[in-house]
Structure formats: C-alpha cells, structure tokens
Design a protein around this nucleic acid. Structure first.
Ligand SMILES: [Zn+2]
Ligand SMILES: [Zn+2]
Ligand SMILES: [Zn+2]
Ligand SMILES: [Zn+2]
Lengths: 143, 143
DNA sequence: CTGGTAAATGAAAATCCTTTTCAGTTAGAT
DNA sequence: ATCTAACTGAAAAGGATTTTCATTTACCAG
C-alpha cells in the first residue's frame, strides 16, 4: 500500500531531520504523483503550492528521501535522474527510450548470480542496478 | 583474446570511417589499457603521444567505437561515463563504489525475465542495463 | 511561552560533463 | 594531383548538479 505523506514525515522526524514547509511540499508532490519525476519537473509542481521554494532545496530533499529509501531513482544514462515513491520495496524499471515512460517490476531474482560473483571476484556486493530499455506500447511504430 | 589496434582499425575502414591519426591514437590507448577510462582520463593519456588532439575528438571517437560495439561503457550514476575494450561480447560490470575498479562478468541470464516483462507490459525490449556495486577486495576494511 | 542553536534554505556562482557550431584540414577515392 | 565528404579542434552553448554563504527557521531546553 502507498505510504502517506504523514508516514514519510514521521520517518524524517524519527531520523532527526527537521520537518520544514518545503520538505512537506516536496513530499506531498511525490506522494500524489504516480510518474517518475525529474528534479526540475518536481520543482515546477511544488512551486504551484509553494512558489518561493528553491530548486536547490528540491535537490536536497530528493537526495535525503532517496538515502532513506523512501523514493527510488531511475538511471537514464547521461540524462537527468528521476524519482518516484518507493512503494514496491525492492524493484526495478523498464524505461521507454523514446518518451521516457517508466514501468516498475519486481522479482529481479539476482541473488544467485550475486553469490557467484561475490565468490569469483572477492567483491563485497552491496547492490545492483538493473533496468530494461525499450519502446513502450505507445511509442512502437512511431517514427 | 584481446583485439589488436590493427583489428579495430580494420573494422573502422570496413565501415567506411576514415582512419585518422587521432583515431589511431585513441584506439592505441584503449587497447593498451586494462582499466575503464573516462573521456577526460583517456584524453590525458592520448595527449602524451598526440598533444594537439581535442577533447571533442576523443568524445566523438569513443561514441563511434561504442556504437560499433568495440568498446563498452560503464554507467556511474550521475558521474562521468567510462569505457573499456569490449573483449567479452555481451557482458556486464561489477563496480567498486570506492575506487571505481571494474570487473567484467558474463552470463547475465536475463532472457526469461525479459520475456515475462515484454508480455506483461507490452514494451518491445531492446536491451538491459545490469551492474553490481560493492567494495572490491582492496577497498574492504578501508575507512 | 521564550530564547538559543544547529539545521535548513535560496540566490547566485561555480563545477562538470557533454554537445553544438563552424571554419579550416585531411583521408582516401578517382 | 585533385576533389570532396568526412573529420578536426577551439570556442561557445547547454544542462544538470553542487557549492557557497548569508539569512531564516524548526524545535529543544529552560
Ligand atoms: Zn514510450
Ligand atoms: Zn533487484
Ligand atoms: Zn566491460
Ligand atoms: Zn575498490
């Protein structure tokens, strides 16, 4: 089930972060939107209700939420990052290379491979990055 | 076995690319180094033997070699990209989050998952991005 | 309720990495 | 040797993110 803004706010205070109006505003937007949003896009939305907020603060808040595991990040090569609520627990993304639409999926099932690599290389593996790239239904057939 | 500079050069001419001194220089550096190099680092090395080369040309050459599948790219979050000789065919990377060391591995075995996702989402999947992140043997235990 | 204080903010500047532009150069075909 | 499209490099533009620093604010203690 979707975390509420309230729930997220309480995590912040528990961790010793201050609960500012700006952070609330960012959290509200994240919670109420289903898309993955780039910092700039999120900034635009937040400004509707909180016109004085700075883009820097949006960056900082996203960074913080991401470190707390409350939002997750989509990696897009050189292009800008984007974030969405981490509602699924551990999951990954399928990204449309044309329009940028993101679909989530769970069940990456990489533990076995991770084991093998750990043994073969001596790396202490801490995480993985998995993403599929392709054309979404809408973008197929479009030149 | 490692592709030679000569072999790579011949691929270029076969594909209709001109074989310039600059491209030769970039290829030589790529072939003779085992690390994954960022464009800027590669530029520095190339300059030792070819001081007049421009960073832009390094970027362009790397892009070209990458598209031909002759070198492969490591993805590093927001940070700069980096490349190394593509000796393994289809493979992925294990990246040390501290020093940046990269180990290659093959056998990602994602076809089944890819099938499933394709059916579930309607995406026409064209590729995947897989990378493990951790601490390499050397960096473990270092604060 | 007051402070007091460390944390947080925002504007601007600074960094970085990468791409674009464009005028001049050159590889390689004829 | 000539020709031309491909290639090059300097500089500028672009874009995203980070740093800096003076100002403001949340929240704990009193
Ligand atoms: Zn699409
Ligand atoms: Zn996973
Ligand atoms: Zn590789
Ligand atoms: Zn390391």
């Amino acid at each position: 089930m979707r975390p509420t803004a309230r729930k997220i706010a309480s995590v912040l205070t528990q961790k010793g972060y201050k609960l500012t109006a700006q952070r609330r505003a960012v959290i509200d937007v994240v919670v109420s939107s289903s898309e993955h949003l780039a910092p700039a896009a999120l900034y635009e939305r937040v400004r509707r209700t909180h016109p004085a907020i700075g883009l820097v603060t949006v960056y900082r808040t996203l960074e913080m939420l991401s470190e707390l595991g409350l939002i997750c990040r989509v990696h897009r090569g050189g292009k800008s990052r984007s974030y969405t609520l981490a509602l699924l627990g551990h999951h990954h993304h399928l990204v449309c290379s044309r329009c940028g639409t993101v679909a989530d999926f769970t069940g990456c099932d990489l533990e076995e491979l991770q084991q093998r690599l750990s043994q073969d290389t001596g790396f202490k593996i801490e995480g993985h990055l998995l993403q599929f790239v392709g054309d979404c239904r809408n973008c197929q057939g479009v030149t």
